[in-house]
């Protein structure tokens, strides 16, 4: 039996797309949380996220970083710094206190390996949030494994419409399955702690916890 080694050693022969999904995209929830804690304008978070991904992908195409997660967050941090300089607008919290860019990634990282049941539960919840028609289409296509044509016939839709439902579902699921990050009341304890510390620093020691 061969040795088992930790998997964050880059495997050079591995296709970069697979590496990227496993080592980078798997951190999306934390990345979004990280961006949202620093960047005030919520409607730009998706832009920042995608641009961070693009930068990481391009860099990794040259040579995969040894510590992908640290590299991902460093890239996000640099990107935000660049934007602040370029735009000369205060887009970040805490009154331009650059310490805020040094939010410890580990502090906002929940345990990465959540249970399989939790993953399934999250998927079920994400699925439940789709519009009814969308759910029917997905169900027939992916659970009952009908062809697109058969789904269209069964539901009395055109194939084009079935495709539209599926495409919309793909976008929504990608969002919902990782959306916990921005949901109020779902931010884990360590984050709250940092938030409180920050509030104290801003408003003085008399501020209640």
């Amino acid at each position: 039996m061969e040795d088992l080694k930790p998997c964050n050693v880059p495997v050079m022969s591995e296709p970069i797309d697979i590496w990227f999904k496993r080592e980078i995209l798997s951190h999306e929830e934390i990345l979004v949380r990280f961006l949202a804690r620093i960047w005030l304008r919520r409607d730009e978070i998706a832009d920042l996220r995608q641009e961070t991904y693009a930068r990481v992908y391009e860099a990794a195409r040259q040579s995969p970083p040894r510590n992908p997660k640290a590299f991902l967050f460093a890239t996000a941090r640099h990107l935000m710094t660049d934007r602040i300089r370029r735009e000369r607008i205060v887009s970040i919290r805490a009154g331009g206190d650059n310490d805020y860019l040094n939010v410890l990634v580990e502090e906002i990282s929940p345990e990465q390996r959540v249970g399989a049941h939790q993953e399934l539960a999250r998927l079920a919840q994400a699925f439940d949030r789709l519009p009814a028609r969308c759910r029917e289409v997905i169900w027939l296509r992916r659970v009952k494994e009908l062809s697109q044509k058969e789904v269209a016939a069964r539901l009395g839709l055109t194939e084009k419409t079935v495709e539209k439902h599926l495409a919309s579902a793909a976008r929504k699921l990608a969002h919902y399955m990782r959306e916990d990050a921005l949901a109020p009341g779902k931010i884990p304890k360590p984050t709250d702690q940092v938030e409180n510390d920050e509030a104290r620093r801003e408003h003085g020691p008399h501020e209640p916890d």
Binding site: F20, E28, E51, Y53, Y57, L123, A124, V143, A170, L173
Partner: peptide, 22 residues
């Protein structure tokens, strides 16, 4: 940007294939 957007959706889509298990 196109590529990473695609990979992101593809990954979620593959992951959501577990709907079959449900």
């Amino acid at each position: 940007l196109n590529r990473v957007a695609f990979l992101r959706l593809e990954q979620a889509w593959e992951e959501s294939a577990r709907i079959k298990a449900l």
